[in-house]
Simulated assay, not measured.
Amino acid sequence: MTGSPFVLPPAPEKLEVTRERVRLRPFEESDLEAMAVYRGDAEVCRFLPFEPQTADDIRRRNGHLIGCTSLEGERGGVMLVIERTDDGAVIGDLVLFHLDAEAGSAEIGWVMSPAASGKGLATEAVRALVDTAFDVYGLRRLVAQIDADNERSAALAERIGMRREAHFVENEWFKGRWSDLLVYAVLDREWTAPGPSAP
């Protein structure tokens, strides 16, 4: 069998997703300083594939995604900042990347400011990202890869209804230790079922 039944729809020209307490939009140059506040925190970066970052570090690593709304291309992806709707403060960011166009699959990830933790804002934001991936980008499968020691992120993935598909034991030397990797996933048809999309 050749080819794939999946066809990626055109990328949106503009993207803004608003929920009750959070707004998602493509990140801009003007967001770099706010992002560096939480991405510069060693504890925030403990389980992430980079060390604490300055605004210049973020620009070098992710600058090609500024304003981007397309998943396609060798370095394609969408990076969205999370704003609180009440005051416009940037409290985190989300990524949708590693597109497998033939399979209609992509990876999601998130980074949150500790100042926003414990309020359900990350859950609301990641749910909005999943909605966007399925409804706007027409994807059929999403994956999240999480360090097994990152209990908060694993709990978030499970809270929104993602399924744990794999646990790779000591699969990578990561930040001074052999780390375990958890892989979570959800299909579009599962997401439209009552559980995951409920508030």
Rank of each mutant, 00 (worst) to 15 (best):
M112L: 15
R140Q: 09
G40K: 00
G73S: 01
G40D: 09
S30Q: 12
E190T: 00
L15D: 06
P196F: 07
D41C: 11
V183R: 15
D149R: 15
A36H: 11
E151G: 08
E158C: 02
E16P: 07
P5Y: 04
A144P: 11
R23F: 03
P10I: 06
V136E: 12
P199D: 11
S30I: 05
A101Y: 10
E190L: 00
P114S: 10
C45K: 02
P9A: 11
M112Q: 00
E102W: 12
L156V: 09
G77Y: 14
R21F: 02
G161K: 08
P49S: 13
W178E: 04
L139Y: 05
E165H: 03
G76D: 00
I66K: 08
T69R: 03
L80N: 14
E72N: 12
E20R: 02
S153A: 09
G76F: 01
V7M: 11
L80Q: 12
I82G: 01
D56E: 14
D87Q: 06
A128R: 08
E20A: 06
E170Y: 03
E124V: 11
K119Y: 05
S113A: 15
F168M: 13
F47R: 02
E16N: 08
L80D: 02
K14E: 13
K119S: 01
P114F: 14
V44I: 04
M79N: 13
N62K: 04
S105I: 02
A36G: 11
R39M: 06
V78T: 05
D86G: 02
F168K: 10
R23Y: 04
A157Y: 08
D93M: 14
A185K: 02
W191D: 07
H64Y: 06
D93N: 15
W173K: 14
G67S: 06
C68Q: 15
L121S: 00
V90L: 02
I82T: 05
R75V: 09
V136G: 01
V186W: 09
G161F: 07
P10D: 13
F47V: 10
M112S: 01
S153W: 11
S30L: 08
M35H: 14
I108G: 05
T69W: 12
T18C: 01
R46D: 03
